Amino acid sequence: MTLSTASFEAVTAMFARVSGIRLSPAKKPLVEGRLQRMAQDAGHARLDDYVHALLEAADPKELTRVVDKLTTNETYFFREPEHFDHLRQLLRDQPPDGPLRVWSAASSSGEEAFSIAMLLAEELGRRDWSVIGTDLSTAVVQQAQRALYPMERARNLPQALLKRYCLRGEGDYAGQLLIQRALRERVSFRCANLMQEMPRDLGQFDIIFLRNVLIYFDPPGKARIVRRVLAHLKPDGLLYTGHAESLANLELPVRSVAPAVYTHGG
């Protein structure tokens, strides 16, 4: 199945309105691949017919499914390990004297949030800490809440942490891992769109991970997202961004304290 240029532009315009992410024409094969099964399930032999029906009906549930499908969620445990090394050393040098709250602001299916939780459990033990993960996609938030992953996602996970915090699947669950209950109880997930105002009850955080999401936005979009996220960062808190994501020339009230690590200032 292929999309006409008009249908591609129509569906990606809808996606941009909802998510703020603009997909270039180079992403046309990706969009076609993601929508094929949905078109077949809806009884359409042509992608153009499916897109026309989708936009004509404007069914919120089906539109949400499309947004979920088009949201890229490539992640694994302890991705970009330099950040975890930095956070580990920080906690050793300056352990918190009160509750520590961490926000994984583009948590996808939860691997980043649980990686943070493993590190906090190692360094802070039973002290008062928690991790919140948010993502635009309802599908990946539900996956994160299940905390069940293919074993291949643990390729960067140290064996000691794998044994301590994960259960290896057997039988029907062979080749999968489940995060142990004690760790799951410290981590929560919810839907949130970074292009919109955050939920009022989200609160303030000591540390925010905002990694590998800004690359999908133009400079004004990046600036709006970072400002929105900074409103939830405590005065002496830290913001981690992806190493391929620069905040330079965005006129943001931040200062760099390490590679891809920022705090209030500027």
Rank of each mutant, 00 (worst) to 15 (best):
I21K: 07
F8R: 00
H44E: 09
A13Y: 15
I21D: 05
A45C: 07
P25H: 03
G20L: 01
L30P: 06
L35H: 02
A13S: 11
G43W: 10
A45Q: 14
P29Q: 03
I21E: 11
E32P: 05
A6N: 05
V31Q: 00
V18K: 09
E9T: 13
L30M: 14
S24V: 12
L35M: 02
V18I: 13
I21P: 06
A16E: 14
M14T: 04
L23K: 00
A42G: 08
L23N: 03
A39R: 03
R22P: 05
S24D: 14
Q40R: 15
R37T: 09
P29S: 04
Q40M: 14
M14K: 06
L30I: 07
E9D: 11
R17L: 13
Q36Y: 13
R46Q: 14
S7I: 07
Q36S: 13
A39I: 02
R37Q: 11
V11W: 00
A10Q: 04
P25R: 00
S24P: 07
R17W: 12
S7G: 01
A39N: 01
P29E: 04
S4P: 00
A13E: 13
A13T: 15
I21A: 04
A39E: 01
R37F: 11
R17V: 13
G33A: 12
G20N: 01
A16I: 10
E32M: 03
K28Y: 05
R37M: 09
A45F: 15
G33K: 08
A42P: 06
T5G: 05
R34K: 03
S7V: 07
L23T: 06
D41M: 15
